[in-house]
Design a protein around this nucleic acid. Structure first.
Lengths: 69, 69
DNA sequence: GAAAAATGTAAAATACTTTTTACATTACAG
DNA sequence: CTGTAATGTAAAAAGTATTTTACATTTTTC
């Protein structure tokens, strides 16, 4: 799942560690998510979006594998 | 984390099982999430939003415990 | 009201996320 | 160029989500 964390984080002049503290997780968690190692929990996704002043839908860019409607 | 799954699901006249199939998870997973037993993964949240024709931010209503900006 | 469909629930097993600790590399300021 | 801050990475342990199987209860339909 692609994301726009790095750009938004840098726009706010936050280090990974500062963002981690604001989201109450470790720096390694932010680093892993920013680098697409795994997806955050939904709660953390919301927390990151909140701190970065955006929405989950804008912060994470998911290409659906489900072709339905 | 509160959600609006049930209303949107019923608006589309889907059973939990049908929604589960469309999202490629089990009925129990949908049931548990709909009843707030636990939060879905971010991927499933996006899949559910897609199938229910909405966004993650509208489908899940998260009250931030983070007072920051 | 009986049958069928839908929903609720539970326990064990599996998979994934996060923490912790620790070290290595890269970027940046003086 | 040297020191410091920032970032990348790894392994083990703990926490959380999901599946599977199975059964119970509620709701709907006829």
């Amino acid at each position: 799942m692609n994301n726009t964390i790095r750009q938004l984080r840098k726009a706010k002049k936050l280090s990974q560690e500062e963002l981690a503290n604001l989201c109450q997780v470790t720096r390694q968690t932010i680093n892993a998510i920013e680098n697409n190692k795994y997806d955050p929990t939904l709660k953390l996704a919301f927390d990151m979006a909140f701190v970065l002043d955006t929405t989950v839908d804008k912060l994470f860019l998911y290409e659906n594998t489900i072709y339905e409607k």
